[in-house]
């Protein structure tokens, strides 16, 4: 019986990509297949009306998770449950499919440059048959544009006539046009200037409050994530290393990687403290290190970390995948 509070659930999601060379070349040089483990066993739940954020550096698999959550990528194994149903079944029915939508990072690439804004926003309304007749569709488009802070007259313009922030507003209007309940937002403000980023984040928060939306928010920016999230998952090399309520994560970060990430952020407060940048780089997801993937960069690594992969286990309000934390070595 699914938990009533759980609206969206990821169960042990795995996604591998085959990045082998073509078979003839491979036979010639006697090379095996090369598998990139973009996402390697991730589980989480999102209660209705809340925001879960996934943070991590490039290549940690956060965008792959985002795409699996709306069905843009299939899963190698594991399931996505949407409102108690398997995503594959849910997507088969159009009245279910309209309930999930996605907002992409680049508002320059995700809008069709040859379509007028009104047509871009109206497409889902027509496709799902949510309004009958031209006037009703146009009225709904005008309402959506107003809702995201644009003028209904902007519907007659083309995307190139808008700035980055306004384009992201159009993307949001398009996503909202099918009356979705669950929005996956993949770095929605990363391409925007900071003053415009504030506009978009405020808008997204307002819409969540007003429409009761559930968000999966993907970002590399911890400060942004703190402003919007109820819960936060920190990803490293295809796995969750820590999953915690937002305030807990920032007040008591537990995983050494989470601590390193927070330590690395340039400090506006200029307290003059010398930061200890985390050494080394993210290893290749094709040949991840054995044991805990973070051990080559971790100050707390010991033999067990190099041998045995830590599971995500509860430590008070937090879930954390770290031997040092479980053994009480983390301090």
């Amino acid at each position: 019986m699914p938990d009533a509070a759980v609206f969206v659930e990821a169960q042990d999601l795995v996604r591998h990509f085959d990045v082998s060379r073509p078979i003839l070349q491979r036979l010639a040089v006697r090379e095996g297949k090369r598998i990139l483990r973009a996402v390697d066993g991730i589980s989480f739940t999102i209660p209705k009306g809340t925001t879960l954020s996934l943070v991590g550096e490039s290549g940690c698999g956060k965008s792959t998770v985002a795409r699996m959550m709306v069905g843009l990528y299939g899963t190698t194994s594991g399931h996505v449950l949407f409102d108690g149903r398997d995503l594959k079944q849910a997507r088969a029915a159009s009245d279910q499919r309209r309930r999930l939508q996605m907002i992409f990072q680049d508002p320059y690439a995700s809008l069709n440059p040859r379509w007028r804004v009104a047509d871009i926003v109206a497409e889902p309304i027509r496709a799902f048959g949510l309004a009958q007749g031209r006037d009703a569709v146009l009225a709904r488009v005008a309402e959506l544009l107003t809702q995201v802070g644009l003028s209904p007259l902007d519907g007659q313009k083309f995307p190139h006539e808008f700035s980055g922030g306004q384009r992201q507003r159009i993307s949001i209007a398009r996503a909202l046009s099918s009356n979705p309940e669950f929005l996956v937002c993949d770095e929605p403000t990363s391409a925007l200037d900071v003053s415009v980023q504030a506009q978009i984040l405020n808008l997204m928060k307002d819409l969540q409050r007003r429409l009761g939306l559930t968000y999966l928010f993907i970002s590399h920016n911890l400060a942004v994530v703190r402003q919007v999230s109820d819960r936060i998952g920190v990803m490293y090399l295809g796995r969750l290393v820590e999953l915690a309520p937002a305030e807990t994560l920032f007040t008591i970060p537990r995983h050494p990687y989470t601590r390193a990430l927070m330590e690395a952020i340039p400090d506006l407060e200029m307290t003059g403290r010398t930061r200890i940048p985390v050494g080394g780089e993210v290893p290749s997801p094709i040949t991840p290190p054995p044991g805990c993937a973070f051990h080559p960069r971790c100050p707390l690594a010991n033999d067990r970390c190099r041998r045995e992969r830590p599971e995500l286990l509860a430590a008070e309000a937090t879930m954390v995948a770290c031997h040092a934390v479980q053994e009480g070595r983390a301090g």
Binding site: E57, L222, A260, L261, E263, A264, I265, R275, P277
Partner: peptide
């Protein structure tokens, strides 16, 4: 990435 950024700035 932010962890590399810190190294380069330093």
């Amino acid at each position: 990435d932010v962890s590399i950024q810190a190294q380069i700035i330093a």
